[in-house]
Every structure is written in C-alpha cells, then in structure tokens.
C-alpha cells in the first residue's frame, strides 16, 4: 500500500503546486504509516522532491507525453496506481489537472474530493475539508471508495520541508494511441507571463478603471510584482479585457497569496471566486464598497493617483530587497 502523488511540471520544471502536493502526500503517507511515491512526466531534477518527503519517483520519459494530454496522462497514472498498489492519490488544482482527474477517477472508480484545504481530519473513515459553494462554505467530505483521490487547493497546505532519501525509478507505461485521436491544431498562449491559476500574486481591475486604455498601470503593477492580471466580469463582458481574465464565481477561481483589487466593488459573485486568496488588498474611491469588508488591507482613494504611486514605491522596495 502506498500514497501516489502526481507532480506537475512544465518544460521539465516542477510547478510550485507539485511541491505542495508532494508535501500533502507525505502527510497522508505518515498518517497511513506508508511512503509517498511521486509520478513525474519528463521532469528534470526529480531528486528535489525528496525535500518534501517523497521517497520514490516513478519517472516517465516519453516524447509523446511532452505536451499535456488529459486522457494519456490519466492512463499512465492509473497504471502507476496499480503498480504501487496506491490507495490514496494526491493531485493539485491546476486547470490541466482538473481536466485530467475526473478521467482518472472514473477509470479507477475512485471517489474524488477536489479543492481540499487541509490534511485529512480522519483516516478511517477518510475525511477531508474542502471549499464548496464557491468559497461561501466548507464541506467535510468522506471518501468511501477503496482508492481515494484528493485534489489539494493551491496555497492551502503549503510546502513542508521533510527531507528523505529518494529513489528514482524509470517507468515505461503502455501508451494508448486512442488518447491521441484528439488533435491539437493550434495553441494560442501568452508565454513568459504569470497565469491566474499559478501566480502567487494577482492584480485585478474593475469597472472603476473607466476603460481599456487605462490598463497600462495595471500591467505595470503586475510586472513589478511578477503577478498575473485579472478583471471583474463586466470588464470582460465589455470587451476591455480578454474573457480568460474574468475571475469570480462564474469565471476563474483565484487562490493566490496576494490579490489586489483595483476599482472593483466586491459583488458577492466576485468575492466568491477570489476569497480563497490569502491576503486581499482593495483600492477604491468609495469607503462603503463591499470589498472593504472582505479585505485585509485597503486604501480609500483614486486608482489613478494611488496605483502610479504604488508602482513607484514598489520599485524602490524591490531595488532595496534584491
């Protein structure tokens, strides 16, 4: 019996969520009195997972799996589950992973608890705490099946130092050609920019910014912070910003360490989607804006004055702190 974790990488490099998922897997493995095994796809530096308690890596090196394919990845992970007799599978909450896991769960006939925010509350029965109702509540969910899948929320459990000896084993699974029937014709992706799903910091603008021509300062602020840019729903509906930037209950969820909301009122649907972020800062002219009741820090003021000053001060701060 073991705990298996899918550690996600991009261009060979582990994502931050891979280390969080690994830390979580180690925790579950300790509770179960077993070890945590990772499966990696074309990743470099597999040894680094040992820092977070992984004692064995099943290392997959395969050209066909260089780009993410949900069905093929699910099939490989299912084979690893079988090989290692894994009873608990730990995954992250990235967009690709959320695409893949239901396929894996249906194959394994495994119960799946997504958006989990803490270590299991109990092992027998297996119960975890997860967000539900778009962060308006939590559910304590019991997983009933023999194999259990836990999706760990970003920035919830954290990375835990737990150095162990690590063994790397090459793993050559069967690749099912039917996974590649779906052909990718074109990928249109901004490269080298933080994405809302992965970024530690998200800078978001609302209708208070008056028009798309004023987004220069939002982008500059994001650049200084290494942040992703986002927006409220009306901003994307008005075509000021691309749909992919719309965050909230009906847009992308945000679970960053820092969320900066500029000219956003804080409607219930907006807050529902961003409240999983650890620290929230609001900049708004209206002291009565509902977002101030959901935020940690706030500045009552005009974005057109505050944001340029903030950019300047942050640049000074960065210059001193690097």
């Amino acid at each position: 019996m073991s705990v298996l974790v899918y550690t996600e990488s991009e261009n060979g490099k582990f994502k931050k969520n891979a280390f969080e998922a690994a830390s979580y897997a180690k925790e579950v493995a300790s509770l179960l009195g077993t070890s945590a095994i990772a499966i990696t796809f074309n990743a470099h530096d597999n040894e680094s997972l040992g820092e977070n308690g992984i004692s064995k890596v099943l290392k997959v090196s395969n050209e066909q799996l260089k780009t993410f394919n949900a069905k093929a990845f699910a099939s490989v992970i299912a084979q690893a589950v079988e090989k290692e007799n894994a009873k608990v599978v730990i995954v992250s909450s990235s967009a690709d992973t959320k695409f893949m896991v239901p396929i894996l769960a249906a194959r394994l006939k495994a119960g799946y608890a997504p958006n989990v925010v803490a270590a299991p509350e109990s092992i027998e029965p297996f119960t975890v705490k997860r967000t539900a109702f778009s962060n308006k509540g939590f559910a304590h969910t019991q997983i009933n099946t023999d194999i259990k899948i836990v999706g760990v929320s970003n920035n919830a459990f954290g990375q835990i130092e737990n150095k162990v000896d690590i063994e790397i084993e090459d793993f050559s699974p069967n690749i099912d050609d039917s996974s590649f029937l779906m052909k990718s014709i074109e990928v249109d992706k901004v490269v080298g920019k933080a994405t809302i799903a992965d970024a530690d910091i998200v800078v978001s603008g609302g209708r208070g910014l008056k028009g798309p021509e004023n987004w220069g300062m939002i982008e500059e602020l994001a650049e200084v912070l290494g942040a992703a840019t986002a927006c409220s729903k009306p901003v994307s509906d008005l075509g000021w910003r691309p749909h992919g930037e719309h965050v909230g209950q009906t847009g992308k969820p945000v679970a960053s360490n820092l969320y900066i909301a500029i000219g956003i009122s804080g409607a219930i649907q907006h807050l529902a989607g961003v409240s999983a972020s650890k620290t929230k800062v609001v900049i708004n002219t209206d002291p009565e804006a509902p977002f101030f009741r959901a935020a940690d820090y706030g500045i009552v003021g005009d974005a057109f004055e505050v944001v340029p000053k903030l950019i300047e001060k942050l640049k000074d701060f960065k210059a001193q702190n690097t």
């Binding site: 119960g111 539900a132 939590f138 304590h140 969910t141 019991q142 009933n144 009741r293």
Partner: peptide
C-alpha cells in the same frame, strides 16, 4: 464515491 458529512461557514473576516 463521496459523501459530504458536515458543512461549515467561513470564519468572519477581521476588519480591514
């Protein structure tokens, strides 16, 4: 596969 046994509301937010 799963059962939600209990629910909980988020703790009220401290003041900004």
């Amino acid at each position: 596969g799963t059962e939600d046994k209990k629910f909980e509301k988020p703790a009220p937010k401290g003041t900004v």
